[in-house]
Design a binder for these strands. Sequence first.
DNA 1: AAATCACTATACCGTGCGGTATAGTAACTC
DNA 2: GAGTTACTATACCGCACGGTATAGTGATTT
Lengths: 188, 188
Amino acid sequence: MNNRETILENALVLFASFGYDATGVQEICDQSGITKPTLYHYFRSKRGLMEALLSENYTPYIKRLKDACEYRRDLPQNIAEVLRSTFRFADSNLLFYKLQFSMRNAPARGEAYDIIKPWIKAQHEPVFTLFSEAEKDNGNMRGRAQAYTITLLGMANAYIQQAFEENTALNEDLAYQARQQFMYGIFS
Amino acid sequence: MNNRETILENALVLFASFGYDATGVQEICDQSGITKPTLYHYFRSKRGLMEALLSENYTPYIKRLKDACEYRRDLPQNIAEVLRSTFRFADSNLLFYKLQFSMRNAPARGEAYDIIKPWIKAQHEPVFTLFSEAEKDNGNMRGRAQAYTITLLGMANAYIQQAFEENTALNEDLAYQARQQFMYGIFS
DNA sequence: AAATCACTATACCGTGCGGTATAGTAACTC
DNA sequence: GAGTTACTATACCGCACGGTATAGTGATTT
């Protein structure tokens, strides 16, 4: 494995364990068996390292999420796919999921939140567009696209957290249950 | 207002805005118009300051939550009260709510999470006990007390976040809607 | 063979951090 | 009025932080 990948791997572990602020560049270098100039050669700054980490791990998920949000006049189907892709995202790299989750919920004016902000937007956008499209076919939903987006993703996180803390699987059944519960919230 | 209260107030604003790690003791002192020895007189350390902040703001909520979890063979009633007390907690001091939320979701081995850990336990415990009691009256629920605890509190947070981001009220209606949705998740 | 390039180590810089030694003041205690 | 206590300011400490200047190395290009 080349140094760049080694650095990214160790940075992920440390950032996810101790947080962005509390993890020193020197620590990442020690763990990776390299020195600071090497790290600064590949990544322009500590922040640049974090940005690269986010980019590499988010990109495939966002792509799948966009596909899942392609509206074909079957909203339940879309919701199932959104949940499935999100569950899969969490399941495939739990460490990164935890890291991005902690950053999303970090104080708004901190650096960690500032770095992850564009990715939050990239995640919300397709889901918001999906609900906006679906609004046109269902008057009940009018004007609530943003609320649905937040609740759906928030609920997905609640389920993921639950599965993680209970050490149970993030399987198809759980995705189905989450979908049913969410749909009930819409049409009640 | 005395210095102790001034310090606590400014610390809350700064910690909630920039995070525990990124907020310097000096900054808190400047904002409060005092110097470091004064701060260290009232609070033994930066960590002690954070602990005092948590204690003062959490205590009344935990007390109300415990009352809300007193089981009288009417689980829906309990759930409504849990949601209401939690919504009220978030509504009464949004800044503190945001601070504790960011800390709950901070990396597990960071200092911020370590400080808030006992309070998470104090919050989960009464809710968990409630569901454990209710299990005895409803076979369907057996063995899921912890899952219900996590999902209920997670869902409450999703609603609170939604209300905050949409700038809508955390009113009785929303608590009712959340309860219905949660109950549907249990009995489906 | 000279020059260029990507990459890496040693050693260092300025800054800001959490925390404190010292000393003083004003208000109570005996 | 002497001693004690609670509180606060000046000035400082040691340290770890993010980042870099310098100097190489070995492979590739010309």
